[in-house]
C-alpha cells in the first residue's frame, strides 16, 4: 500500500482491531470459575473435616490439606485431566492450590525429554517460580516490619 494510506490505516487499525475483537463470554466464564473453584474448595473442606476428625490439631490441619490437594492437582495433571477441566473452569482451576500444583507438574512432564536435571529439575518452576519469589519475598518483608513494630513501637 502507498505510504499515505499506510499511515492512515496504521492509525485507524487499533479501532478496527477493537471492533473486530470477539469478547470472552464473561458471564459463562465466571459461572464455570465459581462452580468449579467452589467445588475444589469443598474437596479441601472435606479433607479438612476428615483430618480434624482424626484428631489432627487445628493449627496443623492446613499442612495436611495442602499436601493432599497438591497431590490431587499433580495426579490429575499427570493423567491429562486437569487441563481439560481448566479449559472451561479458567480461574476456577488456576487460583486454587491444585492449579499451583498443575503449574509445577505440567512443565516437569513437558520437559522430561530434555533430561531429568536440566529438563524436569530446571524447568519445574518456569510458571510457578514467580509465585514463590513474590510470595516468599513479601512474607519476609511483612515479617521484618512486624518485628520492628513489635519490638520498637511497644
Amino acid at each position: 500500500m502507498e505510504k499515505k494510506l499506510e499511515k492512515q490505516l496504521s492509525e485507524e487499525f487499533k479501532n478496527m482491531v477493537d471492533k473486530n475483537n470477539p469478547q470472552s463470554s464473561i458471564i459463562k466464564d465466571c459461572i464455570f470459575a465459581f462452580v468449579i473453584g467452589g467445588l475444589i474448595c469443598d474437596i479441601g473442606q472435606f479433607f479438612m473435616n476428615l483430618f480434624l476428625s482424626f484428631g489432627i490439631p487445628e493449627d496443623n490441619v492446613g499442612f495436611y490439606v495442602a499436601t493432599v490437594m497438591v497431590f490431587l492437582g499433580a495426579f490429575l495433571t499427570g493423567l491429562g485431566i486437569y487441563d481439560n477441566v481448566a479449559k472451561y473452569a479458567g480461574a476456577g482451576t488456576i487460583v486454587p492450590i491444585t492449579g499451583f500444583a498443575n503449574s509445577i507438574v505440567s512443565p516437569a512432564m513437558e520437559f522430561k525429554r530434555e533430561g531429568y536435571i536440566l529438563g524436569v529439575g530446571a524447568r519445574m518452576f518456569i510458571i510457578a517460580g514467580p509465585v514463590l519469589v513474590y510470595g516468599i519475598s513479601s512474607s519476609v518483608i511483612v515479617g521484618i516490619i512486624y518485628y520492628f513494630i513489635k519490638y520498637f513501637v511497644k
Binding site: C30, A33, G38, D42, G92
Partner: peptide
C-alpha cells in the same frame, strides 16, 4: 467454603 472459594476464583476470572 464453596461460596468464598468460588468468589475468589471469579475475581481471578
Amino acid at each position: 467454603a464453596f461460596i468464598v472459594g468460588g468468589f475468589i476464583c471469579v475475581i481471578g476470572q
